[in-house]
């Protein structure tokens, strides 16, 4: 029986799958996931798609905030840049989606690194404020730059197609979103097994020590901003493809707060945590909607208050997690798992 950590080599400590059964479970899960569009109704698929996009964005934000320790309130703006550059490239140049999405990511990465430059001079709450200001400035530019973004009216996005195959329904775009999401998670998971990822963590834990150890802070901070923004930009591009029309209102400041909520609730500095958080925050309004419509008979007022209820529950979960489980769902899940693994002899 396994009852402790028996890692004797660095390779064992760095491995992604602790056991073969974990590997098998993951492939089973992926198998089930990829057959889902065949038998699930469109409504569920829509939610799943949004979860997939949220996973990409949350992993990206976690790379910056959870792993590198740079607080960013500008994700919504980054997503908007991704979405609008994707839309612009698609409509004005007629580029196919497999070029639009990475180019949108690169564009966002470039912008993210630009916003990241002040992070070399300022940190912590000053950085939070700078990114918040960046959000409002980007929003202003998007509204005003009508020739590119379509202004307030927004931009309609051409359907992504591969040859004759059109990603025009929830059922089809599901594959696009989830293939990208899985690649993103895989890349992020592996990133933190490399020198670059470890440099990020070192900067978060103790910037000065990291510099003494030979980590080039300037380079790695900008790199972190770049990679994170690339993810967020890709998520923004996928939002564009999924919702088919985007406007400045698609990416309000609350989106940024939602994403921060995801990584807080899921677990800062944990890839799995970002996934849990993305699922949790995306499902929350849906669960509320279902429960309020179930209670609509005796309490008809509840339905009208849905938006406020969602905000209330979101706030309570964020505050509750920070107070009682600061390491998020990922840590709680881990401790529950290890409790049952050793049951009844847990210590």
């Amino acid at each position: 029986m396994r009852c402790g950590d028996f890692k004797t080599s660095y390779a064992a400590d760095m491995t992604i799958f602790e056991s073969n059964s974990a590997r098998v479970m993951l492939f089973l899960f992926l198998g089930v996931l990829f057959t889902m569009p065949l038998y699930t109704p469109g409504y569920v698929l829509d939610i799943l798609n949004r979860i997939g996009i949220a996973v990409i964005g949350a992993v990206g934000l976690n790379i910056l905030t959870g792993f590198t320790g740079q607080i960013s309130l500008g994700n919504a703006a980054f997503m908007a840049i991704g979405g609008f550059s994707c839309g612009y490239l698609g409509t004005k140049f007629g580029l196919p989606f497999y070029l639009c999405i990475p180019l949108a990511g690169l564009m966002t990465a470039f912008f993210g690194m630009f916003v990241g430059i002040p992070s070399l001079r300022i940190k912590g709450l000053y950085l939070a404020m700078a990114t918040l200001a960046a959000h409002f400035i980007v929003e202003f530019i998007i509204v005003k730059w009508e020739s590119v973004t379509g202004g307030v009216a927004g931009l309609s996005i051409p359907v992504a197609k591969l040859g004759a195959f059109q990603f025009d329904s929830d059922r089809r775009i599901f594959y696009l979103i989830f293939i990208i999401a899985i690649l993103s998670v895989l890349f992020a998971k592996n990133l933190f097994r490399t020198k670059v990822g470890k440099a990020f963590v070192a900067i978060r834990d103790q910037a000065i020590s990291a510099e003494v150890m030979g980590v080039n802070i300037l380079k790695y901070k900008l790199l972190s901003f770049g990679i994170s923004s690339f993810y967020v930009g890709v998520a923004g591009a996928l939002v564009a493809y999924q919702s088919k029309i985007i406007s400045p209102e698609t990416f309000p400041i609350t989106v940024a707060i939602d994403y921060l909520g995801m990584i807080i609730i899921g677990g800062l500095g944990s890839i799995l945590g970002s996934i849990y958080g993305a699922i949790f925050i995306t499902l929350l309004p849906e669960l509320l909607r279902i429960s309020t419509s179930a209670l609509a008979g005796p309490f008809p007022l509840l339905v009208a208050k849905l938006a406020a209820m969602k905000e209330l529950v979101f706030g309570m979960f964020v505050v509750g997690f920070i107070l009682f489980e600061p390491a998020g769902i990922a840590a709680r899940w881990h401790s529950i798992k290890s409790y049952w693994k050793l049951y009844p002899f847990s210590h």
Binding site: T65, G261, K305, M309, G315, V318, V319, L323
Partner: peptide, 24 residues
């Protein structure tokens, strides 16, 4: 004494709660 991001997020969460209560 906890990390800055916790404090920032907790006040953001609090702002959600207060806004929601006023809206309700």
């Amino acid at each position: 004494g906890s990390h800055l991001i916790s404090v920032i997020m907790v006040t953001l969460g609090l702002s959600s709660i207060l806004k929601a209560l006023v809206q309700l």
